[in-house]
Simulated assay, not measured.
Amino acid sequence: MNITLNGKIVFLDKKMMVDELLEVTKAQTPEYVTVQINNEFIDKADFGITPINEGDTVEYLYFMGGGQ
């Protein structure tokens, strides 16, 4: 199954949920990542029940704070 992850084509050997994808792709600081699938934000509570489907476009987004 092919998806686009952060702008790159990635092959997945099986269907998986968002939480599995984060683990398989070794996402940096997965506890802080925001996931968007096909331009829709996925609630962290739904990572374990939201499937990744053939052709999906997935983005890992990291929001950083800072300043004075």
Score class of each variant (00 low, 15 high):
V24H: 12
L12F: 14
K44S: 07
N38Y: 06
L61S: 05
N6C: 06
G66I: 01
Q28C: 08
Q68N: 10
D13E: 14
D46Y: 08
V33S: 07
E54L: 05
F11R: 03
E54M: 00
V35A: 03
G65N: 07
G48L: 02
D43P: 00
M64L: 12
K15P: 08
K26M: 06
A27C: 12
Y32M: 00
K26Y: 11
G7R: 08
L12T: 11
K26F: 15
Q28H: 10
I37T: 04
V10N: 06
I3F: 14
I49C: 04
E40N: 10
N2R: 11
T50D: 01
E40T: 08
E59V: 04
Y32R: 05
M64P: 00
N6A: 07
E59W: 09
G65V: 12
K44G: 00
D43Q: 12
G55R: 09
G48F: 02
A27R: 03
I49H: 06
F47M: 02
V58W: 08
M1S: 06
Q68P: 01
F63I: 09
T57R: 11
D46C: 11
G67S: 11
T4S: 03
L5K: 10
E20W: 14
M17G: 08
V58I: 14
N38M: 01
P30R: 05
M64K: 06
K15N: 11
T57I: 13
G55T: 11
F47T: 05
G55P: 04
K26Q: 12
N39F: 12
L22I: 14
F11P: 00
L21W: 13
L5V: 12
F63H: 07
L22Y: 11
E40K: 15
T25S: 10
G7N: 08
T57D: 04
G7C: 03
M16Y: 14
D56R: 12
G7S: 00
T4E: 04
V24M: 05
D46I: 07
E40L: 07
E59Q: 15
F63R: 02
G55V: 10
L22F: 11
G66Q: 10
V33I: 09
D46W: 11
P30K: 04
V58H: 03
A45S: 14
G55Q: 06
M17W: 11
Q28L: 13
N6M: 07
D13L: 05
I49V: 14
M1F: 15
I3C: 04
Y32D: 00
E54I: 10
M16W: 15
I42K: 10
V35G: 04
G55I: 03
I3P: 00
T57P: 03
M64N: 03
N39W: 13
K8R: 14
Y60L: 07
L5T: 11
K8Q: 09
V18R: 02
D43I: 06
P51V: 13
K8N: 13
E23S: 09
Y32W: 08
